[in-house]
């Protein structure tokens, strides 16, 4: 996917000069970015770079002091501002998300978790449910069938009746994605989906994310520390540091960008460039492991 073709595509998220402050701390500083339909966009940056703040601004959790954020969730939607919108309204606009520290409904079964997501799009009310009206039963069957299909799709076939809290860690991650997909989103926001997973799970996850993007046509915004994962599946990468966007481009461009390397290593751009020229592939892989260690400390 090249830059020229992106310009003609329609925009999913349009973040325009957004500044977000908490008291005196500037969390996002004049950030402008676009996310295009059908792409996998990764947002990376060191801890505290403002990734999660960006995430929360996109989903209406935080209200930026300056700037606008608009979303056109599904293809053909008109852009709508998310600022000040309630979380569930943003979700209804076609924006689904997962959480960094998995937030499932642990006491519900896996199937029910997915059904909760699906059913927020349904119409039948409590009285229809109490009386068991035919349309309510039809919706119920539909949601069960859709949920089972989704569970199969994310690689949890036959696990529907397990309690979500009893699933293995990697399975919970997948279940969260299934629940998000249940709301029929145009764009899926993944907050560090690979955190805490092992290499095999990571590979499967990368495959899953790419497949969702490919087969369902869902645009994906990915916040992730794992560079291998990001580099392998992202179409485009945006780098944040200290609340500012410092770089944007394809994975190859970002890997060679001295500013990015400097941000990760904390050295000056010139030094980083020298290092990068000496061993272009190694630098980011190194920072990657450093990051992982930091996370382990957390």
């Amino acid at each position: 996917m090249t830059a020229t073709s992106q310009a003609t595509q329609d925009v999913v998220f349009d973040v325009d000069h957004v500044t977000l402050r908490f008291g005196g701390v500037v969390s996002l500083n004049d950030v402008t970015l676009q996310m295009y339909r059908g792409e996998i966009l990764a947002v990376i940056g060191p801890n505290g770079a403002g990734k999660t703040s960006l995430f929360n601004s996109l989903t209406g959790v935080y209200t930026p002091q300056e700037g606008t954020v608009t979303v056109a969730g599904r293809a053909g939607d008109a852009p709508v501002s998310v600022i000040g919108k309630k979380t569930h309204v943003v979700n209804h606009l076609g924006v689904a998300r997962t959480f960094q520290n998995i937030r499932l409904f642990p006491a519900l079964t896996a199937l029910e978790n997915v059904k909760v997501g699906i059913e927020t799009r349904q119409k039948s009310g409590p009285i229809a449910a109490m009386l068991g009206m035919p349309w309510q039963r039809r919706e119920e069957k539909e949601s069960t069938a859709t949920a089972l299909a989704l569970l199969n799709d994310v690689g949890l076939p036959g696990r529907g009746n397990e309690l979500a809290g009893a699933l293995a860690y990697g399975e919970q991650r997948r279940l969260e994605i299934a629940r998000a997909l249940g709301t029929n989103p145009g764009v899926l926001l993944l907050d560090e989906p690979a955190a805490g997973t092992n290499p095999v799970e990571k590979r499967d996850l990368a495959e899953l994310i790419s497949r969702i993007n490919r087969e369902r046509g869902v645009s994906i915004l990915l916040i992730e520390h794992d560079m291998k994962l990001v580099m392998s599946i992202a179409h485009r990468i945006i780098v944040l540091n200290f609340g500012e966007k410092i770089a944007e481009g394809t994975p190859q461009e970002i890997q060679r960008d001295p500013v990015v390397v400097a941000a990760y290593l904390g050295t000056s751009a010139e030094d980083a460039q020298q290092q990068a020229e000496q061993a272009p592939e190694l630098t980011l892989i190194d920072t990657d492991t450093v990051q992982d260690e930091e996370q382990a400390d957390d």
Binding site: T87, R103, L104, E119, M130, E139
Partner: peptide, 26 residues
Amino acid sequence: RLEGSRLGRAWAAIREDEVAAQASGV
């Protein structure tokens, strides 16, 4: 019947995790 309906599940969802329920569109 209500317990097994979408409303029943939505209740269980907000009881378990209100933030996640909101993010799922409840």
